[in-house]
Amino acid sequence: MALGLAPQMSCSGVTKSDIRQKVWDYIEEHNLANFPRPVHHRIPNFKGASQAGEKLLCLQEFMEAKTVKVNPDKPQENARFLTLEARKTLLVPTPRLRAGLFNKIIPPPGATKEQLRICATSQGVKEYSVPVGLDASVQVDLIVVGSVAVSEKGWRIGKGEGFADMEYAMMVSMGAVSENTVVVTIVHDCQVVDIPEQLIDDHDLTVDYILTPTRIIKTDCKLPKPCGIIWSKVDTELLQRIPILNNLLYREKKAGRAVTIKNEQAASTNVVRNISVCVQEHNLENPSGSKRTVTVMESQDSRGITTVYVGNLPAGLRVSELKTLLRAHNAVPLRLTWQGAQRRAFLDYKNDETAENTVAALQNLKISGNTLRVELAKSQRASSHGGAT
C-alpha cells in the first residue's frame, strides 16, 4: 500500500471495509483533503484533485471521445469542466440514482470559460442539465469515476454503496457502453494501494487508467467489466432505493428474458403487508413522547426468527457500510432494522444457530475505533421499532 500503509495491513482476511477505513484515516491524519471533511464515507476531495484531472488532456482516449460521463463528486469537478471546455457531451449521474440514470449538461449558448466552470459545479449540474431517458440513443466513449482505493492492476473500491458499479451495469443494459469504453479514475497517490484479487466480484467496475497528481497509470486490467445488471444480486430493497431499476427489470421481462431477483421467490411465498401505525416514543431522542408514522413489515409467518442486537455503532456510519461488513463476515440477515440515530441495528436470522454464529463472527469487531456490542436480542424488541431496510 502506498505511503507506508502496507505494514499496517495484511492481505489475509482483509475486507473492502478495512481498506476504505485505512485510506480514509490516512488522508485525515495527513491533512490531504479539502472540504468536505471528514472524508470518511465519501469519495475524498483530495488536495491536488484539479491537477490530477488535468491529466485527462494527456489521454488519447479523452481527446478522441465525443461523450464523457463523469461522476458528480467534488474531486471530479475539474474533469467535468475540461469535458465542457473541449466541447464534448458531458453526462453526470443523478445523485444516488434517485431520479434516473444521468443528466446531460447544456451550457448557455456561447458560454464563457467562467460559465463553464459554474456548469461543472454541483449546483451548475442541477441548473444546466436535462435528464437522459432510458430510450435515448447514447454512446459513452469514456467514463470518469471516483474511488476510495484503486490498485495498479485496475481493481477499484468505492465508498461502499455500489452506485458506480450499478451505473455502469445500467449503461450496459441500455447499450450505452461497449467493451471499448475506457474507464478512468482520479485519486490521490496514497489511494493507489494493493487490493487482494479475491475481494473483486463480477459486479465490480474495473478501471483502465488511474490519474494522480504525479502519475498516469495504465492498468492493462485483465478482469472483464460487468456485462450488465446481475439481477440475482438485486433485492427488493435496492429496487425501492433505485426506482429506475424497476423500469429496467420490466423491460427485461417484457423482452421475454428469464429474470429473477434475489428475494423474488421468498417475496412470492410470504404474504407481506405494509401497515402504517403511530408509535408513541419515550426515549432520550424524543423525551416529549411525540408520535410519528412508521412502516412495519409483517410476514404471514415469523416463527423461528432469532434477532441479533448490534450496538455502539460509530456516529455517521451508513447502513450500506454495515451491510458490506455483514457480507464480508457471511452474516447477511433476513431483515435489518436500522436505527442509526441510536447507533444500533437489529438483525433477523432464520434460526438460533445462524444468529449465534453471527454473534460469534462479530464479537470484538471494531468500526472506526468502536468495538461493536453484539448479542442475541428478543425478537419482539426489534419488531417494536420501524426502519427496516
Rank of each mutant, 00 (worst) to 15 (best):
E77H: 11
A328L: 03
G304W: 02
S288V: 04
S268H: 13
L211M: 03
Q339F: 00
P226M: 01
E285G: 03
V308C: 01
V70L: 11
A65P: 09
P224Q: 09
I118M: 13
Q280H: 02
F163M: 10
K22C: 13
A266H: 15
G48A: 09
A328G: 04
A149F: 04
T236R: 08
T212D: 04
Y250H: 13
S232F: 08
L3V: 10
I305C: 01
L362I: 03
N45M: 04
C119Q: 08
C227M: 11
N247G: 04
L336S: 05
V148A: 10
G110S: 08
L284D: 00
A382I: 01
V187G: 14
W24K: 09
S151M: 12
P224I: 08
L376D: 00
A176W: 14
A176D: 10
M174V: 11
A382C: 12
Q265M: 09
V177L: 02
I367L: 15
L82Q: 05
P287F: 00
T89L: 07
I118L: 14
W155N: 11
K88D: 02
E114D: 05
V184F: 02
T389M: 11
S137F: 11
T389P: 03
R117S: 11
V144G: 07
L376M: 06
L199A: 13
G175K: 12
A65S: 15
I210Q: 08
P75C: 12
L245E: 07
